[in-house]
């Protein structure tokens, strides 16, 4: 029974990672850029949600929408200002810029509102504990899991069935050829960032609602964990992010259950190292052989 409860704990923790990892993996899949600022867009989303609930006095779903829209705009701005000028620069330059943007957002938020934490009001969504054979499942974590699954299906649909999705795949395949075919590469990349950041915003609001406490540096650890989850599932592959997130959550819960709660974060990164050594393409990735 205790083991089952730990699995449930792991899945509810993992569904948060999955929600963040979806945006991570999507941006990587299209632009081949590890957007380290993703975790901080997630944080901004949590704060936008908080302020629209407390100051504008809106309900959960309108706040979620506002937060997604603001984050989408923020994502596009980050892309236009920081990444676009570096599109033809080396990978490492873009990566370092991403870390810079991440720090800028974190400390920018601290500068504007201070570092003190805020607590989400508790009465937004009824938080009842459902009891399955002695295993407690919170209704909020079911909601988050449901949201991640729905968003994953939606993303798959956008990328594989729509016109903009086709453009995204073309850009990811070969940027120059796509441009020659008449695809507006800049708009496509902006759209990718907009969708990815909107997902981060949604994850931020969900996180705030579930864990109550939000603060300006809250994006760092979940951001890194989501990165591990994305790599675990195969970075760039949308269902991979979902599975990677859930798997990572379960691994962490079981490590804590075994009595090594202080090793939890360490184990997450050991998983990253092992994956990179033994299966660099991730669980769902195909090994692409480089042509000589």
């Amino acid at each position: 029974m205790e083991f089952l409860q730990q699995l449930v704990n792991g899945v509810s923790l993992g569904s948060i990672y999955a929600l963040i990892a979806l945006g991570y993996t999507m941006v990587y899949g299209i632009v081949k850029l590890i957007n380290f600022a993703h975790g901080d867009v997630f944080m901004v989303g949590a704060f936008i949600g908080f302020y629209s609930i407390t100051i504008l006095d809106l309900g959960f779903f309108p706040s979620l929408l506002i937060s997604m829209v603001v984050c989408a705009i923020l994502g596009v701005l980050i892309e236009r200002i920081a990444y676009k000028p570096l599109r033809n620069a080396t990978r490492i330059a873009a990566l370092i810029t991403a870390i810079g943007v991440s720090l800028l957002i974190e400390y920018g938020v601290i500068y504007v509102r201070g570092a003190q934490p805020e607590a989400y009001p508790g009465d937004l969504i009824p938080a009842t504990s459902l009891d399955f054979l002695g295993v407690k499942v919170s209704s909020q974590s079911l909601l988050i899991l449901g949201t991640s699954v729905v968003l994953m299906i939606l993303l798959q649909f956008i990328v594989h069935k729509t016109k903009i999705g086709k453009a995204m795949r073309a850009v990811s395949h070969d940027m120059d050829a796509a441009r020659l075919m008449g695809i507006n590469v800049n708009n496509t990349i902006s759209a990718t960032f907009a969708i990815g950041s909107a997902l981060a915003g949604a994850a931020g609001v969900a996180f705030g609602m579930y864990y109550t406490k939000i603060e300006p540096l809250m994006g760092i650890i979940p951001g890194l964990k989501a990165f591990v989850a994305a790599v675990l599932g195969g970075i760039g592959i949308i269902p991979g992010a979902m599975v990677g997130g859930l798997l990572l959550g379960v691994i962490e819960s079981l490590v804590s259950a075994a009595g090594f709660s202080l090793w939890r974060d360490g184990v997450a990164f050991v998983v990253l190292i092992l994956i990179l050594i033994f299966r660099p393409a991730g669980l769902f990735g195909k090994n692409v052989r480089e042509k000589v």
């Binding site: 205790e2 409860q5 730990q6 704990n9 792991g10 509810s12 923790l13 864990y211 406490k213 809250m218 962490e252 819960s253 079981l254 490590v255 804590s256 259950a257 009595g259 709660s261 939890r264």
Partner: peptide
């Protein structure tokens, strides 16, 4: 830390 469910289950 933000998620304590695992240690609380123990």
């Amino acid at each position: 830390d933000t998620d304590f469910n695992a240690i609380l289950t123990n």
